[in-house]
C-alpha cells in the first residue's frame, strides 16, 4: 500500500485542524469501531463558509482527506460545498489505495453532516437541501470499495 505524495503532505501538515468556538454547524461521522471518526466545524456567514476546522481519529488517509476537504470548501458557498464529492477528494489527493476510498466518503459526509446541522439550527429541514446522509460506516466493517 502506497500513499501519494499529496496524501503524505496533508498527513504530515494537515490544514485547518482544530475546533471553532460557537460554530454554526458541526458534523461528526464514522465510528470508533471501524477506526475512523471525523468531526467538522463550520463558520457560515451569508451562505458562505467563512471558516472550517476538523478533528479526526483515524489513519493517514482519514487525516489527509479531512484536511483537503476543508481546503476545498473554505470560502465557498454552501451550494458549492454540497457539490464536493468523494471522487473529487480522491482526485485532489492524487489517488488513494483501494482500501482507503472509504476515508474520502467519510470526508464528503462530514461536510454534508455539518451543513445539515447548520440548517437544522436555522430551523430549516436539511433533507430537501442536503439529502439523506447514509451512515456509511455501519460498524460491521463489511463495506467493500
Amino acid at each position: 500500500m502506497l500513499y501519494s505524495e499529496k496524501v503524505m503532505e496533508h498527513f504530515a501538515a494537515p490544514h485547518n485542524v482544530g475546533e471553532i468556538e460557537n460554530a454554526d454547524g458541526i458534523g461528526e461521522v464514522g465510528n470508533e469501531k471501524c477506526g475512523d471518526i471525523m468531526k467538522m466545524y463550520l463558520k457560515i456567514n451569508a451562505g458562505i463558509i467563512e471558516d472550517v476546522k476538523f478533528k479526526t481519529f483515524g489513519c493517514g488517509a482519514a487525516i489527509a482527506t479531512s484536511s483537503i476537504a476543508t481546503e476545498m470548501i473554505k470560502g465557498k458557498s454552501i451550494e458549492e460545498a454540497l457539490k464536493l464529492s468523494n471522487k473529487a477528494v480522491v482526485e485532489s489527493l492524487e489517488g488513494l489505495p483501494p482500501a482507503k476510498i472509504h476515508c474520502s466518503v467519510l470526508a464528503e459526509q462530514a461536510v454534508k453532516t455539518a451543513i445539515a446541522d447548520y440548517y437544522r439550527r436555522q430551523g430549516v429541514d436539511p433533507v430537501p437541501i442536503v439529502g439523506v446522509i447514509q451512515d456509511h460506516c455501519d460498524g460491521q466493517c463489511t463495506i467493500d470499495n
Binding site: M1, G60, A61, A99
Partner: peptide
C-alpha cells in the same frame, strides 16, 4: 497507522495491529 506514519517521518520503523495497516477494516 497514523502513529506508524509519524514515527516513520522521524526515521523509526515500528508496526501496528491497526486495521488500517491491512486491507481489512
Amino acid at each position: 497507522e497514523s502513529l506508524l506514519l509519524m514515527l516513520d517521518m522521524a526515521g523509526i520503523c515500528c508496526s501496528s495491529g491497526s486495521a488500517c495497516t491491512s486491507s481489512s477494516l
